[in-house]
Design a protein around this nucleic acid. Structure first.
Lengths: 232, 232
DNA sequence: AAAATTTCTTAACGAAATGTTAATATGTCA
DNA sequence: TGACATATTAACATTTCGTTAAGAAATTTT
């Protein structure tokens, strides 16, 4: 069962980081590993995460500094700190930044897992409050991205696959404007490379087939840049 | 500066309990102290609290049992457990019940305070308790989720099992909208994994069998997302 | 407290949905 | 034109779902 949750793990000890990443991956989380605060911040900005696990003691940029930077961008994303020893000061600073929890190394992986589940559960309840827009009208279509249904007025309805759905949503949110390839790839495929790019093309083709029902709608390519959903 | 927050502290060691109560009181919390699970449950019912701190090891009724009883009454109140040693099993059980956190004795009081603040901060947004609705009408059915009875108008009535009942209630509360799998699993099964997911499918099948009596009602699956109870 | 009944979990497996990759064709730009 | 980017289709691999059935666990009845 794929949990669909993305975790950013920032840990400078490569062995420990690797093991922890594998453990979380086995437990069905998508894990991105960064080895220091700088890389962590870059990766945090490049794609979207549901939770961050930050080691506090790291070279170049420590976990607390990274946490502050992350909090500036995102006020709600859950943060879990890993502290080498029981450094009370670090723990208190962490809470001040808005940590959700901390764990003292060495810790039990099952307990980390329980914490993660517990934190993600309560956040998902809170996020119901968050008013995410999911109903759109464009051309002769109405589109519900929560139910993943695209319906042609006085025509048929299509059930969209998750990828189709995400891609169409991004196009619609940028209606008549450029949707840069990289942005879409990093958000939907979580990586931008040759293969994900080919995959995206496949999905653009699928969407074009749906949108064919309205002659006035087009997804045009901007060579080397991305795609643009437009009318006329 | 009175924080106005009420804490229920259940701790069997009278000395420690007293000290902890005083410490929290100094920090502007209203603290009610109970010395065992039985007294704790009584006091919980007598007035309203914003947070509970429960010692796990207690005579008569331990903290986990008390927690379960509290959770039956109140699904959202934050629970913090105190464990004498780092008893992994207790910790994991605690999370399964829906703990927000745990602390290992001996712990630092400042850290407890930081945890309490952190937990109350995030909860204070959500604590809008609604009156529990338990009577529903949909399609040709009326459904009483307190009595667990689903009755087909001019047809027969079905006694629902607890799980059938909870699941149907969640579907009805999200009528015509998506009920995400994870949300339902975490609420009803308290865990989302391969097995609970299979179990949920079994229950969806059971509900579909009941709802067959009204041809216009359907529970449809949104692949990878969840289920949707809808009409027509 | 034993027996009967109901509820719940787990396993197995086929069916359906989804995603990736390959192969090949077409288009764009310098 | 040559190099590279994009388009489309098809084959394949993987994941998710639906159902049945067997047995474990809990609850109720006798």
């Amino acid at each position: 069962m794929k949990s669909n949750k993305n975790i950013l793990l920032v840990e400078d000890d490569p062995n420990f980081g690797r093991i922890l990443k594998d453990y979380l991956t086995i437990n069905n989380y998508e894990v991105t590993l960064a080895v220091n605060g700088i890389e962590g911040f870059e990766k945090f900005n490049r794609s979207e995460f549901d939770l961050c696990i930050l080691d506090i003691m790291m070279p170049f940029k420590d976990g607390l500094t990274l946490a502050r930077e992350i909090r500036e961008i995102n006020e709600v994303i859950p943060l879990i700190f890993l502290t080498a020893k029981n450094l009370k000061d670090d723990v208190l600073k962490g809470y001040k930044i808005g940590a959700d929890d901390y764990l003292t190394k060495p810790f039990d992986s099952e307990i980390l897992l329980a914490k993660i589940k517990s934190i993600l559960n309560r956040k998902s309840n809170v996020n119901i409050e968050e008013k995410d827009v999911f109903e759109f009208e464009f051309g002769e279509f109405s589109f519900n991205s929560k139910l993943r249904i695209l319906s042609h007025k006085m025509g048929e309805s299509y059930k969209l696959s998750p990828k189709e759905n995400q891609l169409l949503k991004m196009l619609v949110l940028n209606f008549d404007d450029l949707l840069p390839r990289d942005i879409a790839l990093n958000k939907i495929w979580r990586d931008a490379n040759y293969f994900t790019s080919r995959s995206m093309d496949v999905y653009i083709a699928k969407l074009r087939k749906y949108l064919d029902k309205d002659m006035s709608l087009k997804i045009i390519n901007v060579h080397g840049e991305g795609f643009r959903l437009m009318q006329e």
